[in-house]
Design a protein around this nucleic acid. Structure first.
Length: 106
DNA sequence: GAATTGACGCGGC
DNA sequence: GGCCGCGCCAATT
């Protein structure tokens, strides 16, 4: 496991419930500016035993990017987020200005 | 080891 | 935020 991977997982793991973070944000917090895509690959290859709240990581538009291989539960991520109090609008997006995680204030 | 692909971001139009 | 193109890095083929 690379150090970059560990830092990414650490950041994702630090996202408080009821808040979300974009890939770019996670990448930057992990010390990897503009490596949003890397965050995606790492999460895609996540091991089951990692126990990371990957559902709190979304794309820059505030929408959910689903995995290549859907395990049948396509809306699993959305369900988890709604369970934390996050509301989706008609376009299946959330208000980033309201739910985005702010590391400074948490 | 080169080419391809992939949970993306950002600047332009 | 809709679509297009470019950039970036790792895993896969």
């Amino acid at each position: 496991m690379s150090d970059s991977h560990k830092r990414i997982l650490q950041v994702v793991n630090a996202i408080p419930p009821g808040r979300v973070a974009t890939y770019g944000q996670v990448a930057q917090l992990a010390g990897l500016p503009r490596r949003a895509r890397l965050v995606g690959t790492v999460l895609a290859n996540l091991d089951e035993s990692e126990q990371v709240p990957w559902h709190r990581v979304i794309n820059a538009r505030g929408a959910i990017s689903e995995r290549s291989s859907l395990g049948g539960s396509e809306d699993y991520q959305r369900i988890l987020l709604e369970a934390e109090g996050i509301v989706f609008d008609e376009r299946d997006t959330i208000e980033l200005s309201r739910y985005r995680w702010k590391p400074d204030n948490q």
